[in-house]
Design a protein around this nucleic acid. Structure first.
Lengths: 347, 347
DNA sequence: CTGTTAGCGCGTTCAT
DNA sequence: ATGAACGCGCTAACAG
């Protein structure tokens, strides 16, 4: 039951270690015939390269930059926390993760941050990409300079980014719509929409999905015009307050972006607070409590821990030219009700 | 930016490599003073042990046995597939995963399979533990022999197993109850329950959770007596057929265990098929389609891929005495509606 | 109690 | 086109 090494393969093939190595790593300088003999030996011996030895020998290291929005957004804070946590854990595995805070609303600054990156300082970049054209350009140039880039949470499909780590926001919107439609009685009622900005691609996608499901499946519901609050709690609170005032028969509310706290604040002050079905995004300490207390009825979420780990795996695979296992990297659209909340201590 | 090695630490502390190693690995034979000097050096140099080198040097290997039920259960098949997939992928990381099929309904056979395991052939085992006392005893004896054991999917809390990898089935039942209650109109109606067997702990837990939520939150619903179909499609079909016949006003149906296919078969033949809210467990090709077609309304699930990976991580940590990061290993209770289904190709 | 030394399996020169 | 030899950073056995 001993481990088979290149030695065994070399012996079986009647060649030397170096030759086996060349074949295994597809390097030139080996005759067709020899290369085939080695392949045979590998097959019959079921040789599996030892990743520990390989990792040690080629003193490779992975330096990844994560550009994550700062600001008072609980989800982004989670994402940052996870990234930093993994920077710790994985530093023994020769991978360094640097988190660079960015202002997601300042496209030029983000582009500038991307512009100074380089093969010499960084082997891969993950960025929560705001939808500015200059950001797209910066991503493309970074890629052209040979640094693999993945987008995180918010995609830039038109760019040359290698991969997107995040959820299908259209489907997420559909899910929100279905929950709203089915939680409400089959009776006329109005649905209010709050978004950060429909200029943000993820918000627009969610909105579209939700609208489609409600229009198709629940025609008795009237969909109100979406209002934009820039993911800000105070703005959202005012928006919702006026919404409730203008529509006393409001039945449901979908907060497409962040700022659930503001929405809830307005809601609890409303007369029919607990009757209004409220669906929002991302599991944070706040939405957690809101679900428990019954202020929120459902939360659609994506797991920041999974996303960070996926981004790292993908970037690593990109660095050493391995294929990406798509099924493995798909980020799930989580649905939380008050009953299936994870405890909040761990990830 | 060079990597700091034990050499650097040794030099800084004025001791030799071996001493540093002793301190780092908590081995005896070092004076208090020396041990402190080394600690200091480690701190100031921010030394991080290189896991590749360590892995190579201590030619450790992890041989894990996974005892998974065979039989025509799509979820268990998924679990097995994932385990085998990882056996492939990770074999370069010195970890061998053997999958041993077991008959979950034959406690003696399972106990027998556990009984022949041993430190000499296996460094850890993960078992989908059926709730027989002889299984519990076998787990305890295995542990006593020094082989760490984790239970998978189905727990045995009274045993000495080190860890349980799976979901909180009580909470899962609550979630199912909430979904049923909220999807149904606030009007009188009956809820039917199908289980594999309430002798199975996970089924009993789910049932309890669901009952509690429905009783507390939706008192207008009448809960029918649970019927047991041993997770068998044919039995389930007959049970549901008679259920529908006896209760023309059946409003909802909760299939606590497997065999959704049988339940659905009976359902589609019923007059009010699409009106009955049907909630079940586990995402399989069949429940996937049933959600899409509207036969099922929600699926509560656990991700077999996550569970296998978690089991491997935990077993590994157990083997080399590392702590288990609880938050990292918590398995989520997934909720699937027709809108947030993952594509079925990958994990 | 502490230091010295020889590998672990593979990548990477250099020499042939 | 192929082979021999060294070193990656760490552990483990053996000295002292």
């Amino acid at each position: 039951m001993k481990r088979v090494t290149i030695h065994d393969v070399a012996e079986a093939a009647g060649v030397s270690l170096a030759t086996v190595d060349r074949v295994l790593n597809g390097r030139p300088g080996v005759r067709k015939g020899t290369i085939e003999k080695v392949r045979q030996a590998v097959e019959t011996l079921k040789y599996q390269p030892d990743s520990f030895a390989a990792g040690l020998a080629k003193k490779s290291r992975y330096r990844f930059q994560f550009l994550l929005p700062d600001g008072p957004n609980a989800f982004m804070e989670d994402l940052t926390r996870e990234a930093l946590a993994h920077a710790q854990t994985m530093s023994g595995d020769r991978l360094q993760v640097h988190v660079e805070p960015i202002d997601a609303f300042d496209g030029h600054r983000v582009a500038g941050t991307l512009a100074i990156l380089d093969r010499t300082v960084c082997d891969g970049v993950a960025v929560v990409a705001p939808a500015f054209p200059e950001v797209r350009a910066a991503i493309d140039r970074l890629q052209a300079r040979g640094v693999p880039v993945v987008t995180l949470v918010s995609d830039h499909p038109a760019s040359t980014r290698q991969h997107f780590v995040g959820i299908d926001n259209y489907a997420a919107g559909c899910t929100a719509g279905r929950l709203l439609g089915r939680f409400l009685p089959e009776a006329p009622g109005k649905i209010g929409f709050i978004a950060g900005s429909l200029g943000l691609r993820d918000h627009a996608d969610r909105y579209a999905g939700c609208q489609k499901v409600l229009a198709e499946g629940f025609p008795h519901l009237e969909l109100l015009k979406v209002r934009e609050g820039r993911d800000d709690n105070d703005r959202n609170e005012k928006l919702v307050a006026t919404l409730i005032a203008e529509h006393p028969d409001l039945a449901g509310l979908y907060n497409i972006g962040a700022g659930n706290r503001g929405v809830a604040a307005a809601l609890v002050n409303a007369p029919r607070a607990k009757q209004i079905v409220f669906v929002g995004h991302e599991l944070t300490p706040y939405t957690h409590d809101a679900l428990q207390s019954g202020i929120m009825d459902a939360v659609i979420a994506q797991d920041p821990g999974h996303e960070i780990r996926s981004a790292i795996r993908v970037l690593k695979a990109l660095c050493d030219g391995r294929p990406i296992i798509d099924g493995q990297e798909r980020i799930r659209i989580d649905v939380f009700l008050k009953d299936n909340l994870p405890r909040l201590d761990g990830s």
